[in-house]
Structure formats: C-alpha cells, structure tokens
Design a protein around this nucleic acid. Structure first.
Ligand SMILES: [Mn+2]
Ligand SMILES: [Mn+2]
Ligand SMILES: [Zn+2]
Ligand SMILES: [Zn+2]
Lengths: 163, 163
DNA sequence: AGTCTTGTTGATATATACTATCATTCACGT
DNA sequence: ACGTGAATGATAGTATATATCAACAAGACT
C-alpha cells in the first residue's frame, strides 16, 4: 500500500479503496485524477454509467480530471476487468462494475438502473447453432431492456421493443 | 410503379427491386443515389454491413452518393423496418436486412458473415426476471459471436469471449 | 413530351465519441 | 528529500453521424 493511498484510505468508500488497491496491485499509480474517476464510478456502482456522466459528476464537484483522463481511466479499468462495457439499444456504450461471475444485464431505458443476472438460458441454443451452422461461438451478448420499478411507478414511457 | 424504377427494373437484382418498391410504396422517391445504396446493400444481403463498407462499395464503382446520402438512406430503411441495426462487441454499429420474423444474429468476428436465428430460449429467464426484479421488460438484445466455417478453416484468430 | 412541385442531393459546417501528441507534473520506490 | 518514469491536461486529430441550404430531379399532371 502506497503512502498516498494510505493517507486517503480512511475517507474513501470501500468500493473506491477496493478499486484503487487493484489498480496499484497491477502496477499502476493511484493518482488524484484517477481517484476522482473511481469515486465517480463508485457513486454509480449500483447502476450503469457513461463516460459523459462521469465527466459531469467530476465537473460538478470541481475536480480536475479532463475528458482524456476519464476515458483513459475507464479504458484501464476495462483492461483490468474491473469495469465492463455493456451495450444499450440506442445509447450504445455504457459501463458497469464487473460482476465476479459471468453475467448479463437488465437495464432501465429511462434511468439506467441496472440488474445483473447469470443464467441467460442460451447454452442449449448456442450448442444447437454450432452444430447447425458450423460456427465456433466464442462469445455472447445478452441485454434486456425495460422499465425499472421506480420508472414504472412514475409512468415513464417504455421503448417499443421486441420480445 | 414509377417510370424511373420500371426502366431500371430489368437490370436490377430482385433484392434491389423489392427494397425499391417498398421505398416507393411508402411514398419516398426512388432516386439514383438511393438505388446505388440499395445495390450496395443487396451485395451484402447475406451478411452484415457498416455504413463505411457501403461507402467503399459505391465509391469503388464511381457511383455518386455522398456519405450524407448513404447515412440518410440507411436511416430511412431502418425507419421502414427494411434494415435493422445490430450490435457488435467492439465494432458496434452494423446493419443487416430485416428478418421477416423476430430474430437475433450470430456474427463472424473476422469477416462479418451473418446467420440469423429466432429461438433464443430466453423467454423463461425473462419471465423469471420480471417476477424477481419488478422490471417491465420490453426488449431484448441477443448477439452471438464467433468464427464462421470459412474463417475457422482459414485459421483466423478468435476473440477471447464469454460463454 | 413538357412543366411544376416538392422531396432529395451534395457540399459544408457542426456535433459527439474517442484517440494521439507532447511538454509538464507528480506518485512512488529508494 | 530525490530521481525517474508514468500520468496528466491542453490541444489537435480521427471517426461517426447530423443540421443547413442552394441546386437538382423524381414523379404527378396535363
Ligand atoms: Mn450467459
Ligand atoms: Mn428472442
Ligand atoms: Zn428506471
Ligand atoms: Zn468469417
């Protein structure tokens, strides 16, 4: 544990400390701007976030990191498998903290609220398609979209969708 | 059927004529630039395509349509449900001709080859998640990725993936 | 076939998402 | 405390996509 991180550890949420320690363990420096991005991410930890939303979060607090550093930090966290990119329908690139287990997401099209799930039930279909098509399937992308309970109650309009 | 389209119908692939007739039926004009985009799309009808790939296709043939008109045509076809946007893992926005039935896609990460399938097997998981989370799920996005038989034979490298 | 009308085009500018460059700064091991 | 190399911010650049608008042409009408 570096002196810099130790000094700040007491006043940081555990999510931020966890992320910072993994960044340090991978040999990367825990800098002020990076910590600010980690705090922004931790504030969104329960749902999903875009780079633009992180940018607004840090700017609203007068923090330093510029756009480039926010992108760099998100990319670093992705390569460290601490954050993963998830796909929306229209608003394409969003991010969330990586789940420990293999998983997919269920996202509110109105507010970005996120639930995760692991059992997509696609393995039989995948094996069938491999036999049928000759493809070697190495990845699958599953995203569910709809309205979270809060947005349902608020009467938010739902996107027309396929089921 | 307009005179302009009738004149050219004989020398056009059926896919292009089908698309052009639906464009006309919706009250839009069948112009030269639009026909060029339709021919480019028809050339990719069996797989997927990006706007950039369409651009290269028409430019390689010295056709007129500028980038703006290619984007406009693809967008028009999307609103007419003749073309749909599909999502990749990294290279995000690609397109393909719309399937008559509800469907998902299986795409080659190497060459863009596309297979479609309808039965993703997710309905039980979707119903379970609705009960469990209180979300109203209105859409689902399912994409499978891997190597097509040709690229497997050619020894193409596969993306590291989740299954 | 000629004319009219309105939808469409291409050039250009603009917007947004993201990356490359590079001089300056600062985290961290010593 | 110091030195070094990694990280930063400012800036410019690339890629994707859209807004504007004068010029054009598809299709309807005669
Ligand atoms: Mn799965
Ligand atoms: Mn389905
Ligand atoms: Zn919501
Ligand atoms: Zn292939």
């Amino acid at each position: 544990m570096s002196r810099y991180l130790a000094l700040r550890r007491a006043m940081l949420p555990t999510t931020v400390v966890d992320l910072a320690e993994q960044v340090a363990a991978a040999g990367y420096k825990v800098t002020g701007p990076r910590l600010a991005v980690l705090r922004a991410i931790a504030a969104c930890a329960e749902s999903s976030f875009s780079v633009h939303e992180l940018e607004q979060w840090v700017q609203a607090r007068g923090e330093s990191p510029g756009v480039a550093s926010i992108f760099r930090t998100v990319r670093l966290l992705c390569t460290l498998n601490l954050v993963e990119r998830i796909h929306g329908i229209e608003d394409c690139h969003r991010y969330c903290l990586t789940n420990e287990r293999h998983g997919h997401h269920l996202m509110c099209t109105q507010c970005g609220a996120l639930e995760r799930f692991n059992n997509c039930g696609m393995q039989p279909a995948i094996r069938h398609l491999e036999r049928q098509t000759g493809f070697q399937i190495t990845a699958h992308l599953v995203g569910l979209f709809g309205l979270c309970p809060n947005c349902v109650r608020a009467g938010a309009p739902s996107l027309p969708g396929r089921t």
